[in-house]
Each structure stands twice: as C-alpha cells, then as structure tokens.
Amino acid sequence: MRFSLLAATAVVTTVLAPFAAAPIMAHDDEPAQVKSAPVAVSLTPDQLLAPYYEALAQQVDMPVAGPNPALAAGTTLTRIAVGSCNHQNAPQHMWAQIASANPQLFLMIGDNVYGDNGWDADAGLESLRSAYAMQASHREFTDFRARVPMMATWDDHDYGLNDAGGNFPMRRWGETLFETFWGSSDAVRSRPGVYESSITGPEGRRVQVILLDTRFFRSDLKRAEWSRERPPLGGYVPNESLDATMLGDTQWQWLEQELAKPADLRIVVSSTQVITTAHQFEGWTNMPVERNRLLETLRQREASGMVILSGDRHAAGIYKTAHRGETMWELTSSSLNLAFGNDIERSTAREPDAARITPFFPIENYGLVDIDWKAKALTMTLKGNTSDTLASQTFNW
C-alpha cells in the first residue's frame, strides 16, 4: 500500500469539505443572520497523514528487533557499551566483539539502520521498514539483543531522511516504526518523539541514562551559500536565531526535570556531537544558542558526575571542554560497520580540533563506559573491530 503526501492532502480536504461552509448558529441554536461563512482549515502533515498511517499499521508487517532482557532497577552498573551507525546490509561482526566486553547495558544511539537509502519519497517509508526487517534477520544482532539489555534513540538515517528535522512530513510513521522495532517503553510511546530516561542502581550508585531526541522537534538547519571555495568540513553555517531549537520546548522542560532528579552519575546521549565546534556538519554547533543552553542546563543539574555520549560522524574521538568552571567530557563512538577509511593520521589532520584530546578514528569502533564507584572514576574507552583499544581516558567526579 503506497500513498503520497499529495494524495493524503486531497483525501483530507475532501473529507473536511462539508464543514468548510457550516452555518454559524446563534445562542438559541437557530441560524444567525449570516447563514454561513468559510472556515479556514489548515492541517499539518502529521494530521493529513494520520488516517493513512492508522490504516497502514494494520496492513503491513511491522519489524521487531526481538526479545531483550530488562535491566533490573537495582542493578549496580559498572560497564555500559555504546555504538552508532550500523548499516543493515553490512557485516554484523561487531556484535560479537561488543558481547565479549560483557557490558550490562548497550546504548544504540542513532543511525541504527540506514532506512533512507533507496527511499523514493513514498509516505509509507518502505525503505525504512525494509531496513528494520533486514536488521532483524541478522542472527548476530538478535543473539546479542537476547543477552544484553538495550536502550535506543535515533539519528537521521533511521528517522527517515538525511539531516532531516522537525519539518520531515513522515516523522510520525518513522516514530511508529522505531517504537515498534525497539519495543519502546510506554512513556516513549505516549508522547511525540523518542526521548527517554531511566535511573538504575541503589542510592549512592544510581546511574541516570538520558537519551535525547535531536530530530523530531529540531528546526531546519541554516545552509551555507554555494561557493567553489566551500570549506570541506560541512555545508551548514551557525544559526544564531533565538527561535531555532534542537529539542523543542516540551523536551527542554522534560530534560530540566530529569536533571533535577537525584542521581550519582548521568549518561547524557545526543545522537549528534555536542562539545566540538570544529566542523559544520550536523551537530549542536549548528545552533550556538541551543548548544550554550544545553551546556548550561547540564551544568545546573542536581549534583552528580556526568559524561556525554554521541555518534553520527563515522569517526570516533574523546572530547573535553570547560563551561563556566566545570569540565565536561564527551565520547563520540561511530561507526559500528560503516567506516569511511582506515587512515587515522589523515582523518585527524583533516579536522583539527582543540577540544578533541585523541586522534579522530575513522575505523569501525564501539565505546565503553566503565564506572569505578569506590574511586568515583569513569573511564571512556574506544575499541576497534577486534576489541583492540584505540583510546582511553579516565576522570573523577
């Protein structure tokens, strides 16, 4: 069953046509002197497509990732693994490598499949649905998922379209596919977007994992003007507008509330990079006002340790910055099976960055976060596709 946005518009317009000239009634329920008046009907793409998606959900097979054990609320977390950028058609060898590290939790933080590859603008996002089905067919993945608790958020390629944000017309169906595949919690399913938070562990060893949604509500990016001399590090320029948003008002309020909850360590996940301003690909650097708001919001959290995790870049590194007296750390892990090369020296030199304290690794990788509760120390480690250590950094909180 295929449907275009134009067709959806025509259907809804037809359905609402009888109401467009409805009589205006007086207080006594009798027609007033003015028998009728035009009613302006302005529907969003979400509203236009809702009937179609409701029907579509009953007619197509909805891929699911398979069984996944729940993480017990009382678990003392000491090792969390993280990864991003996993192509459904590429080898799935990294799951065995991650499993060998024995993580208690795995965070899938975006581009979990590449569902926009081959998309032909159909409203049903058939290429995304097919990508999830392909991923679910991999025994390596389902075996891993059956053993290790997982939490997930999305980035653009599993949202539905490269670099897309809140104006993507098919975002609601992309959300339905995501929530169905990953078995999202009732809290996530009850609201727009896929942001989520959990707190695990006993008092004194509580870990809060906050998964942000940097897609569903995000304003359009500001593109750089075309130029023959365009710099090679991205096609966007910073948008300084006070109206531009990364998270949307509701998610911002939610984040502030989550950060006010008691926790001893917070893992804050953004699919795109936060700290770096060294490039103009996608990232919080696209919206400097929002980036500063995020850093300030994180700084004002209820007292706890904190680390930021990100992906997206098809290269990995560890970042450090100071914001109003607080040192903040970020581990970027990308990608699991879609590396762009193996020349670490060239990748590092291509993107000089004072905030990055490691080389920029363009090879397959995953990340580990190890927690030493006695020392109140956190170690971030980047691992290659044979679990060799690429880089490691420890800090105390």
Rank of each mutant, 00 (worst) to 15 (best):
1 M>C: 12
18 P>T: 09
19 F>E: 13
28 D>S: 05
29 D>L: 13
33 Q>K: 14
40 A>P: 00
44 T>P: 01
46 D>V: 06
51 P>R: 04
52 Y>S: 02
54 E>Q: 15
56 L>Q: 05
58 Q>I: 11
60 V>Q: 11
60 V>S: 06
65 A>V: 06
67 P>W: 14
68 N>K: 10
69 P>H: 04
72 A>Y: 08
72 A>I: 03
78 T>D: 12
80 I>Y: 00
88 Q>G: 01
90 A>M: 11
91 P>A: 07
93 H>L: 12
95 W>E: 00
96 A>M: 07
98 I>K: 00
101 A>H: 12
106 F>P: 00
109 I>N: 00
111 D>C: 04
113 V>I: 11
118 G>S: 09
119 W>S: 02
121 A>V: 11
125 L>V: 11
127 S>H: 05
134 M>N: 11
138 H>W: 09
144 F>L: 10
151 M>L: 15
156 D>R: 01
156 D>E: 09
161 L>S: 07
164 A>F: 02
165 G>L: 00
166 G>W: 03
168 F>W: 13
171 R>E: 05
173 W>D: 02
182 W>Q: 03
185 S>V: 15
185 S>N: 08
186 D>K: 08
191 R>Q: 12
194 V>D: 07
194 V>W: 01
205 R>K: 15
216 F>D: 01
223 R>H: 15
223 R>P: 04
227 S>G: 11
228 R>T: 15
229 E>W: 15
231 P>V: 13
232 P>D: 13
232 P>T: 12
236 Y>F: 15
239 N>S: 14
242 L>Q: 14
243 D>M: 13
247 L>T: 06
254 W>G: 03
256 E>C: 10
267 I>D: 03
273 Q>I: 06
278 A>H: 08
280 Q>T: 14
290 E>L: 09
294 L>D: 05
296 E>D: 15
297 T>L: 05
297 T>I: 10
300 Q>E: 14
304 S>T: 08
306 M>I: 13
308 I>S: 02
308 I>K: 00
310 S>L: 06
314 H>S: 03
316 A>C: 05
319 Y>P: 00
320 K>C: 13
321 T>R: 03
327 T>S: 07
330 E>N: 10
331 L>R: 01
335 S>D: 04
339 A>L: 08
347 S>I: 06
348 T>N: 03
354 A>S: 15
356 R>T: 07
357 I>N: 01
359 P>S: 14
360 F>L: 11
361 F>D: 00
364 E>H: 14
364 E>P: 08
365 N>D: 07
366 Y>W: 13
370 D>Q: 09
372 D>Y: 02
373 W>E: 04
373 W>G: 02
377 A>V: 08
377 A>R: 07
387 S>N: 08
390 L>Y: 05
395 F>E: 06
